[in-house]
Design a protein around this nucleic acid. Structure first.
Lengths: 218, 218
DNA sequence: CCCAAAAATGAGAGATATCCCAATAAACGC
DNA sequence: GCGTTTATTGGGATATCTCTCATTTTTGGG
């Protein structure tokens, strides 16, 4: 049931680190289940099987634990995406893969997927971090002559919101299995890729990469 | 300053209706300023210059007033969009206009715009209501041979999320003035409209329609 | 094995929320 | 005007939350 996202990574560190990890795991579960606002520090501590006051030894308040958690997850996800794309030069493929992997990776982990989705919405800094990698691929596509758009914050925001839409559908269970491909295809078309190529690229097989462990960052 | 969105419409109704309207106006302001969760019933009542307990005469709880407010606003907005598009047969133009007007209309009213944006996120029923009209236009476009896509919930979700992205940018002040056109253009391209036509249609002049009053619904 | 440092504890002060209800005031048909 | 119905009032019971701090427990180096 509980993934112990952080807990597993901190098993053989000091006690402080383990408690900290338990708190972060509990926070992820609660943020995912109840949303950020509705989750209380009290319940995070209770679920972590830790006394109320212990929370405040490790985090100043709810905001602090939230941003720590979100940054750790997002960092791990983007790192994994980067690695999976090493060696791929074609921007059309990179862009499509990025969207598909992102949705699949996060969408298959409903527990912290929800937490991350909420965090993406709440903390603009997170969006910006994701957007950085994206921007590179989009500009590469323009340079390669594959994309016919103006790469700017508007385009990036729209692009990201499309990914989030697919992610949301996947997490809420209302989306078909191929939603990641569908979204990627629509994005490629939007960018100016001919319809047949967009369809082909967004549907080509993708070696399945299972979810990763998230190392604990201070 | 205060728009008295509901208050003005209820001026000459019974006293109960007027109090109700005052509460709804206060709720809109507070939801917009503090977000749904952070707004308290106490403060809604205080801002409406009404006793604490009066709130509960009219609404069961915060959720109820929120959904009533959101539905009223959304209904009014979609009604206004519909009216503005009477007589326009071309699906490409209709689609583009819908997006542009929606963003401009709501984006220019930061006070309740934020409230509506949050509501769209929170209440799926609202999205569905907006999606209904949209679906008609998309299918019309396919029938006219202008759009080359499969009209289904995935497409609609993606489309709506693109609109919301533009709306969010406008409301947060980070977007350029022409964001509505930009988003509409990207949407048309996604739907299969040739780039030059998408650019032209999404940039053609749009008679400015100012915001409307929202009649009070039970 | 011992003891200083580090970590964890949990009761509780102080804010603030929601929601109820008996009492009061206003509105309206006759 | 009068009396009944309808609306409003505001105090308070109850709940929950955040955050503090004096105290206790655990840890790990020597």
């Amino acid at each position: 049931m509980s993934n112990r996202l952080f807990g597993s990574g901190a098993a053989h560190l000091g006690k402080s680190a383990r408690t900290r990890a338990r708190l972060m795991d509990a926070a992820v579960e609660l943020f995912a289940r109840d949303g950020f606002e509705a989750a209380s520090v009290n319940e995070i501590a209770r679920r972590a099987e830790v006394a109320n006051g212990t929370f405040y030894v490790h985090f100043r308040d709810k905001d602090e634990i939230a941003s720590k958690v979100a940054l750790a997850i997002a960092g791990s996800v983007t790192r994994q995406l980067d690695e999976a794309m090493i060696g791929i030069e074609d921007a059309v493929e990179r862009t499509s893969m990025g969207t598909r992997r992102f949705i699949d990776l996060i969408g298959n982990a409903p527990d912290w997927g929800r937490a991350l989705l909420r965090a993406l919405w709440t903390f603009p800094a997170l969006r910006d971090s994701v957007a950085g990698h994206l921007r590179d691929d989009l500009e590469r596509g323009v340079a390669q002559g594959a994309f016919d758009v103006q790469v700017d914050p508007v385009l990036i925001d729209v692009f990201v919101s499309m990914v989030m839409s697919g992610l949301f559908g996947r997490l809420s269970g209302s989306a078909p299995d191929d939603i990641a491909s569908r979204v990627a295809e629509l994005q490629l078309r939007m960018l100016g890729v001919p319809a047949n190529r967009a369809s082909a690229v967004s549907r080509q097989d993708l070696p399945t990469v299972s979810l990763s462990l998230v190392p604990l960052s201070a």
